[in-house]
């Protein structure tokens, strides 16, 4: 599947402009990249878990969605779409529906890693043909930046504050992409908004498989990460170059690195440009960055082995 930008720009935007996500937000970029990979003749059904995206893209009397769209309760977008997909299969079997429908969930990291985790796991295990996309900005941004299961260690959030005796979040994030892969579903991948070609290619594969697919897309948030809003793409790129957000895919159990890193950058440079890590550069928090680096290195090395690069 060759991806031509000249072709993509001719496609209809399924998430239209005029929505109310912040300028410089990574999430709608991720959504558009994914939807550009959808089969052009298919009807798209989207379920959105509560989060910035769900609440900012369909504010009365407007909707940015050129698809069917259901905003579920926070915890159960996967379960909601499971029902929709199962009904579609049944109707199709009965010959009552002829068109090709595709089902996509967009959830933030809170709605995916935490409160929506059980429903997600159930959906993947039952084998619904649904593409679940986590637009991952590493905290609860819709409620004003609280820590999530995706928040890296050392991060300042309002519920992992730094101060006397605290240097931000004390726990490492969980590896949800690997957890999704552990469901032995046909396609799982990790992507980032700066690498549109990689994301679109992964989304194409995800749409093509006959079963569940999971995409975890890094979508930086300048409000929560505290960097200038025009730097979203740059931050996304830096994350992959520092190997804190590697790009890879797991296709039918085969792990493959899709973003080879020529020159692995030190984490320090990536942290330095973000306000959410500024406290780590104070003398009282010495050693935290080293700990973070150690975790990143260890995860990166393990990934290289899994992907057959070592």
């Amino acid at each position: 599947m060759a991806i031509k930008l000249s072709e993509i720009v001719k496609q209809k935007e399924l998430l239209a402009g005029g929505h109310r996500m912040c300028a410089g937000c990574g999430a709608p970029i991720a959504v558009r990249q994914v939807l550009h990979a959808a089969p052009q003749d298919a009807q798209i059904v989207v379920s959105g878990a509560t989060g910035c995206l769900a609440v900012s893209t369909a504010i009365y009397p407007y909707s940015a969605w050129q698809t069917s769209f259901i905003h579920s309760a926070f915890e159960n977008a996967s379960a909601t779409i499971s029902g929709i997909e199962a009904a579609y299969i049944a109707l199709k079997k009965q010959g009552k529906i002829g068109k090709d429908f595709r089902f996509v969930v967009f959830g933030g990291d809170g709605g995916t890693y935490d409160i929506g985790f059980q429903a997600l796991s159930g959906m993947l295990e039952r084998g619904h043909r649904v593409l679940y996309v986590c637009y991952n900005n590493e905290a609860y941004m819709n409620t004003g930046t609280q820590r999530s299961g995706a928040t890296p260690m050392g991060t300042w959030t309002t519920t992992s504050p730094y101060g006397k005796g605290s240097s931000g979040k004390t726990q490492n994030r969980k590896d949800l992409t690997a957890i999704a892969a552990a469901h032995n579903i046909p396609y799982v991948a990790q992507a980032a908004v700066h690498h549109w070609r990689d994301t679109v290619a992964k989304a194409q594969k995800a749409f093509a498989v006959d079963g569940p697919a999971f995409l975890n897309i890094l979508a930086p948030c300048h409000r929560g990460w505290r960097y200038p809003m025009e730097k979203t793409i740059e931050l996304s790129k830096m994350a992959t170059e520092a190997c804190i957000w590697p790009l890879y895919e797991v296709e039918n159990g085969e792990w493959r690195l899709t973003g080879k890193v020529q020159n692995k950058q030190e984490l320090r440079g990536y942290l330095k440009v973000q306000g959410r890590f500024s406290h780590l550069f104070k003398p009282e928090n010495e050693g935290v960055i080293e700990q973070m680096q150690e975790f990143v290195d260890q995860q990166w090395e393990a990934l290289l082995v899994r992907c057959g690069e070592k």
Partner: peptide, 20 residues
């Protein structure tokens, strides 16, 4: 707790004040 509007300030303050 878990973040939810309009109660989130209670969690945020508890996160700061309780450890103190």
């Amino acid at each position: 707790g878990y973040p939810i509007t309009p109660s989130t300030e209670i969690a945020e303050l508890a996160a700061r004040k309780l450890p103190e």
